[in-house]
Amino acid sequence: MSTRITLPMSTKAEWIKFRSLRSSVYSIITLLVLTIGLGSLITYARTKHFGHDGDNALGWDPVTVSLTGFFFAEFVVGVVGAMIITGEYATSSIRTSLAAFPRRVEFVLSKAIVLIGVVFVMSEAMAFISFFLGQSLIKSAEPVTGLSTTIGATGVLHAVIFAGLSIVLLALIGFGLGLLLKRTAAAITVFVSFLLVAPILVAFLPSNWGDPITKWLPGTLARGMMSINRDPETFTPNVCGLVLLVYAIVVIAAGTYLFSKRDA
């Protein structure tokens, strides 16, 4: 019998909260289906039209192609991450939660553990299913041989695992933004700005200005984590993962600091 609330107790509470909401369960299932489905569709189309739109053997990365659906997952998972905390503010259930467990740093930690657990399982499943499905589609449709790859090829297993991890890190960044900003709309706006809008704006800059910025953007880093044909302008997959991890830690640390000072 422990003398006070332990991390397993508060984490169990957060897990019950997560799984008992239809919205979170449905968003995970929808995400899984759409990511794999869209990825397969695009993989098939790109393979069929190989050579037509600038796809050529040099730039062709069969791993990245089969994981195209991850563009979609990157966006949705940020929303899922933000909502596990902003949803509590929106319904003011945050007060009930914090009255039950007032140690706020540990409260954040319990939520992060559940988020990491759920998103990790989902995103790795998504990565491996997308990869194997994608490779078999490439193989069945390939106009020239040698376009598909295998999990045993150099760097491929690493890339597929890292693809899943990139989604976990983006979910954590969304969670951190939710902690910082309290409001779902605000958190999503900032998340989408960095993930989707920033690359568009940077694209308007002259390339000697834009390229050094682009490689630090979260979308580029997430893509860099899963690529086997490295763009010379980006970091290695490991460095990409590390930078994205630092982003997640910084945002969550800042969010936790504000969260523990703020009136609920």
Partner: peptide
């Protein structure tokens, strides 16, 4: 404490709401 009867997530069942609270305090 009952501070606000609406301070709960509307999508969660009454029992799950209580189960989560109970779990946090063992």
């Amino acid at each position: 404490a009952l501070i606000d009867a609406k301070a709960l997530h509307p999508g969660r069942s009454a029992r799950n709401h209580l189960l989560a609270l109970a779990a946090s305090n063992n």
